[in-house]
């Protein structure tokens, strides 16, 4: 078993997340893509923690923090999506153009 396998997996997950982030039109799917990105990062951290820092395991501690904050972020994200849905009756990103880019 090698560190590189895990890092490659994390890189692949990261790129899939980026793809989803850019192409999704549903706001909730964009939130899911962000979760994928964060999971790629935690996978990276856990792999480093196991192979480079096995005794002090700072990476595992970091991962716990990332998980905590990801949960908070998705709660806030869904609250915002709900409030926009109430006003606009859609979650389509293409429709959110009251403000021009």
């Amino acid at each position: 078993m090698e560190l590189q396998y895990f890092l490659l997996l994390a890189a692949a997950l990261f790129c899939i997340g980026i793809y989803g982030l850019v192409t999704s039109r549903n706001a909730i799917r964009v939130l899911m893509s962000i979760e994928l990105l964060l999971n790629a990062v935690t996978l990276n951290l856990m792999a480093f923690s196991n192979y480079l820092d096995p005794m002090v395991i700072r990476g595992q501690v970091f991962t716990v923090f990332v998980i905590t904050i990801a949960a908070a972020e998705s709660a806030v994200g869904l609250a915002i999506v709900l409030s926009i849905y109430r006003n606009r009756d859609t979650v389509d990103m293409e429709q959110f153009n009251l403000l021009k880019w």
Binding site: T42, L43, A47, S49, N50, I67
Partner: peptide, 21 residues
């Protein structure tokens, strides 16, 4: 991913991953 964490010798974080995510 939590399965991968178990392979990486991190049982606690794997459990936390399942519980929270």
């Amino acid at each position: 991913i939590s399965g991968l964490y178990i392979l990486l010798n991190a049982g606690f974080v794997a459990a936390a991953q399942i519980l929270i995510y």
